Simulated scan of single mutants.
Amino acid sequence: MRAVRAVSQDYDEPLSGLRLEDVPEPIPPAGWTMVRVAAAALNPHDVWTLRGVGHPAERIPITLGCDAAGWDEAGNPVVIYPTLGDPDAGFGDITFDPARGLLSETVDGTLAEKVAVPRGHLAPKPEFLSFEEAAALPVTFGTAYRMLFTRGRLVPGQRVLVQGAAGGVSSAAILLARAAGAEVYATSRTEAGRAFAASLGAIALETGARLPELVDLVIETVGEATWAHSLRVLRRGGAVVIAGATSGAMPSADLARVFFNQLSVVGSTGCTFDEFTRMLRFVTTHGIRPPVAEVIGIDEAPRGFSRLIEGGVMGKIVVRIAS
C-alpha cells in the first residue's frame, strides 16, 4: 500500500526525509482494528517529526499523519481519535498519561491507504461532512474543544479572545466558541489572517491591539509574542488556557497581574475520547464545517508539506487517499 513516510530527519531541510513508499499493510495487534483511509490531514506535528524535534531518531522510519477519516472493517464511515495511551495511568484521563502520544509518534500514522488503531478509537463520521472535512477535525477541533469547555469552562454569553487566529486550533476555537454563544475576538499579525478570522465569525484585530472590553477567557497557542497581551485583556477572575507556544515558551510571567487580578493560567493538551465524541456531536448539532484550504492527492503530499512549511495556509490541507 502507498504511504507518506519520514525516513530521515533534518531540521533545516525537513522535506529531504519525506518519501512516498509502498509498504506492507499493517497487521492489527489484539484489541486493534484496521481502517481504510479515505482522507488524512497534514499537521505541523508531521513537520516537527521531519525536523527531528520531539521525535527520537530511533523511531524513524515511520508513516506520518495524526488525523483521518475512513471506513472500519464493517464498512462504516468513521473518524479516528488520534491519542494513544493508558487512561488509567492518567487517573481516568488519557491526556494525563505521561507516556501518551499521537498516531505517528510510536506507531505508523494515517497518511496511508490503511492504518491500524485501537478498536475503541473509532467514532461515527458526522453524516453531513465529507471525508475530507471530517479528516480535518481530530487534532485541532479536539484540542480546541477541551480548551474551551473542559479547561476554560466557557458558558454562553462570555467573551473570548483567540490569539493567532489563522492557526488550526485557533480557527477551530473561533467556530466552536461562536456556536456556543460566546462573543469572540481574534488576533492576527497579517491582514489575510484577520480576514480569515472575520470569515469565521470573529471580531478580528491586529496582534496586541486594544480590545473594546475585557474578556473572560483567552485561548493561547502563540506563547511569548502574545502572552503579555493575553494577561492584559483578561477581566478580574478570568482565565487564559494555553496549549502551545509557537513563538517561544519563556515569556515574562507578570505574576503581579496574575495574583492581583486573580487570574487563572490553565494548561491543556489534546482531548479525551469522551471529549472527542462530544466535539463531534457539537459539530453536528451546530452544522460546523472545518475550514479546508486545499484537497490534494497522496502523490502531492510533498507539495502540501511545502505549503505548510512556507506558512500562511488558512485552514487544513487534506490528502484524499480513497473514494
Score class of each variant (00 low, 15 high):
169 V>E: 06
166 A>I: 09
124 P>T: 04
180 A>M: 04
118 P>S: 09
97 D>V: 02
140 T>F: 07
157 G>E: 01
118 P>V: 07
148 L>I: 00
154 L>D: 01
196 F>Q: 08
113 E>R: 14
131 F>Q: 07
132 E>T: 15
165 A>M: 10
185 Y>I: 02
180 A>W: 08
95 T>Y: 08
158 Q>P: 08
143 T>Y: 03
181 G>D: 02
144 A>K: 01
122 L>N: 09
106 T>M: 12
160 V>E: 02
78 V>A: 11
120 G>T: 05
120 G>A: 07
128 F>S: 14
138 P>S: 06
170 S>G: 12
97 D>Q: 08
126 P>M: 06
125 K>F: 01
145 Y>D: 01
136 A>K: 10
96 F>Y: 15
157 G>W: 02
187 T>D: 11
137 L>S: 08
81 Y>W: 04
137 L>M: 06
145 Y>V: 00
109 G>H: 09
149 F>C: 06
114 K>Q: 15
97 D>M: 07
179 A>Q: 10
155 V>E: 13
188 S>R: 09
94 I>F: 11
152 G>E: 00
110 T>D: 05
187 T>Y: 12
121 H>I: 04
171 S>T: 09
123 A>Q: 09
100 R>M: 09
187 T>G: 14
117 V>Y: 04
130 S>V: 03
109 G>A: 11
166 A>T: 14
132 E>G: 11
165 A>Y: 10
138 P>F: 06
95 T>I: 13
80 I>G: 12
115 V>E: 08
